[in-house]
Design a protein around this nucleic acid. Structure first.
Length: 343
DNA sequence: CCTGGCCGCCTCATTACGTCA
DNA sequence: TATGACGTAATGAGGCGGCCA
């Protein structure tokens, strides 16, 4: 499913949206190759007066207006957050529904592209005009139960049951007001939010409102989704980092074990072969700039002043392949003389 | 220029719900 | 059918920065 939203002036427009094909027809549903497209103008508020005063949205903004208490306030906040705005009205282009959606729609007996599955925003205008909407969460609920994951796997015969559950639940909410605690987002909604998240992990108020409109969610829900998504990303990254550090630790442990073994071999060699015993001791020095480690002879100090060039940077005297962390310095350059770290 | 209040957004920790084995 | 594990939507607390009087 592709949805396109063309904003008048977005500081950070969705890149993936630009890839979407545009439906040129505006303000009415139109049939394109048997699929439906919908485009509507959305007036983003531009008043600078006190909070909650301005309401210049298009008709479907009423859905948010009907939201209760906190959510309603949130919507106000988000539409006014940017302060004065001279942006042109936002044009929302809803692109043709995917075959999956169309199939579902037709299986429900409705016209393709107009059935309630997932976030079928095409329901919105008719709903706003002809029906009374208690809240956008009602719409969400209805859409969720009308479609979503279960719908994909269940036979069409369950439609009536699902619809009944939806209406029952909705009526419960009507009675209790705030009984709704949690809604599962549909696959399409999640996928679309995921796409947005790939573009940018945070949203400005305009993008949030636009996304909410497009997905038939409250801006607060979009906001919460992005917050939770960032948290999940961070958690996952932490796990990856932890795994990486664990592997580093294991490698270092193995390296340490190997070095111990090599040291024992060298000691054994020293006792059995006096030639190696006459070789100067070897220590490791680290270049402070590039942090590379090299072997350096620590032969007894010469009688005359130390000549910098006398310092040996030869590889290990033994035929030992250097590890990743132990290798001779690269050739010194004027701007990189490879001075050992001052201790 | 400084300051305090307000607001919006963030992270973080936690809760609560839906789903699945 | 009941249950526990898991994923995730939602909530609340607290911090921070911007704006404004």
């Amino acid at each position: 499913m592709e949805l396109g939203l063309s904003l008048g002036d977005s500081s950070k427009p969705f890149g993936f949206l630009s890839k979407a094909r545009e439906i040129t027809t505006t303000t009415t549903t139109t049939s394109t190759n048997g699929l439906q497209g919908f485009c509507m103008a959305l007036g983003i508020n531009s008043s600078t007066s006190a909070r909650g005063q301005q309401r210049t949205h298009s008709h479907d903004e009423d859905d948010d207006d009907d939201d209760i208490s906190e959510e309603d306030e949130d919507d106000d906040d988000e539409t006014t957050n940017g302060g004065p705005s001279l942006d042109p009205p936002v044009q929302l282009n809803l692109l043709p529904l995917s075959p999956v959606l169309a199939d579902n729609a037709s299986s429900e007996g409705g016209s393709p592209g107009t059935a309630a599955r997932g976030f079928d925003v095409n329901r919105l205008p008719a709903t706003a005009v002809g029906e009374e909407v208690t809240s956008s969460s009602f719409l969400m609920d209805f859409c969720m139960f009308g479609g979503g994951k279960k719908r994909d796997s269940e036979a069409a015969g369950n439609d009536a049951v699902e619809a009944e559950r939806a209406s029952s639940r909705a009526s419960d909410e009507d009675e209790n007001g705030l009984s709704r605690k949690k809604l599962r987002l549909s696959k399409e909604q999640s996928a679309y939010l995921e796409e947005s998240f790939k573009e940018h992990t945070t949203l400005n108020p305009k993008q949030k409102v636009a996304l909410a409109k497009q997905l038939n969610l409250r801006p607060r829900q979009v906001e919460v989704w992005f917050q939770n998504r960032r948290a999940r990303t961070k958690l996952k990254q932490t796990e990856v980092d932890c795994e990486y550090l664990k592997r580093c630790c294991e490698n270092l442990t193995e390296e340490n074990r190997r070095l111990h073994k090599e040291l024992q071999e060298l000691r054994a060699l020293k006792t059995t072969n006096p030639f190696y015993a006459q070789l100067p001791a070897t220590t490791l020095t680290m270049c402070p700039s590039c942090e590379r480690v090299a072997t350096t002879s620590t032969a007894p100090p010469p009688s005359k002043p130390t000549d910098p060039t006398s310092k040996t940077t030869a590889p290990f005297p033994m035929s030992r392949p250097p590890s990743n962390t132990l290798f001779p310095f690269p050739p010194a350059t004027p701007d990189h003389p490879h001075q050992p770290a001052a201790s």
